[in-house]
Simulated assay, not measured.
Amino acid sequence: MMWDSRSWTGTLVEAGQYFITYEFVSTHNLYTWYLTGVYAPHTRDEKLNCWEELVAVRTICDGPWVTCGDFNTNRTMEERKGCNRISFVMFDFSTWIHEMELHDPQLHGGDFTWFRGLNHPSAARLDRFLFSMEWEEKFKNIKQKLLPRVLSDHCPVMLECGNWEKKRSNFKFGNWWIKVEGFTELIQVWWNEFLVEGCPDYRLNIKLKMLKEKLKNWSKANFGMIANKKNSLLEELAEIDELQGTRDLTEDEMMVRATIVVELEELAKNEESRWRQKSRVLWKKQGDNNTRFFQRMATSHRRNNTIDRLIDKGEIVEDPIEIRNIMIEFYRKQYTESENWRPET
């Protein structure tokens, strides 16, 4: 097991016959997590003992936990060439992952991590990363990626966890979305397109995340289209009004103008609904035309919820990373019991 000492401080926690566990503390922001490397045995009884030992290791790793390595078994028939039945050890392995509440992300770049030889048909997915819910809550865009195999019969596997700097952007369902024509049908199409393997609760969790990303991208593109459509309608309306200043409008032109006005009203309602939800002002009537007021309220909430400077030991700190480290250290001290503290009897 190797790590970059410029970024992490590693401390041995536990070592067994088939695994080794280290605690890693970031040198940048005191973030702590645990990694267990595994090289599983061959027989079923030995594997069961190995997994029981990993359960015990997990109890002493209080925080985000990742385990990885050669588990020497696959979970599904698709993870081994020529496999036509689910063996007992495959069932045991999947049950253990489920009971440990671990996540097994989809493997990108290939289906198998082990090959018997260049001209041999045997291949299987024996190597993988598994991680706890605390790890998933911390990082975004977690992917398990297959790397090229050079000399070994095993392919290297890399766990990608997105950018280190976390940019908070909470997902919020837009109330105005349900008013868009065909929105419900679009959700149904997306949901049916998502193909996820695993236990039911894991599939539901992953599909909801995939749906969230689809909705975010759709909302961004659709809202941009709404803005362009609004500007286009306003230009058409200005042209008709200019024409009306020189002569009477024909019946068809009056019908076009009325249609444009109706469409603009509908767009205005959607825009108002969007800003109303952002502002969290729920005591205003939906029909009131207070879009500018809602925009100011949303901006005010954003400003009040932002800490752009702190005074630490008499000095003003404005760097976002330093502010974050100061806050982490403050609450770490607040929730750390003193060595001299004793419960009352």
Rank of each mutant, 00 (worst) to 15 (best):
D248R: 11
N222V: 11
G224N: 14
S219P: 08
N228C: 13
L243S: 08
N231Y: 07
E213A: 14
E213M: 08
R247S: 14
G224W: 01
L243R: 02
D248A: 13
W218P: 03
M225D: 10
K230D: 00
E239K: 05
I240H: 01
S219A: 13
Q244I: 14
D248G: 15
L237S: 03
N231S: 14
L215D: 00
E213L: 07
S219W: 05
G224V: 03
F223E: 02
G224F: 02
I226Q: 14
A221E: 06
D241S: 09
F223W: 04
K229N: 15
L249K: 07
M225A: 12
L234F: 05
E236A: 13
L233E: 03
D248E: 14
N217Y: 04
I226E: 04
L249H: 05
D248Q: 12
A238E: 11
K229P: 01
K220N: 05
E235T: 15
R247I: 15
K230E: 04
F223M: 07
N228D: 09
T246F: 12
Q244Y: 15
M225P: 00
D248C: 14
L233I: 14
R247G: 11
I226L: 03
D241C: 06
D241K: 10
T246N: 05
K229I: 05
N222W: 08
T250A: 14
S232E: 11
E242M: 10
E235V: 07
E251K: 12
K212C: 02
M225T: 08
G224C: 02
L249M: 04
E236C: 07
S219V: 02
S219Y: 05
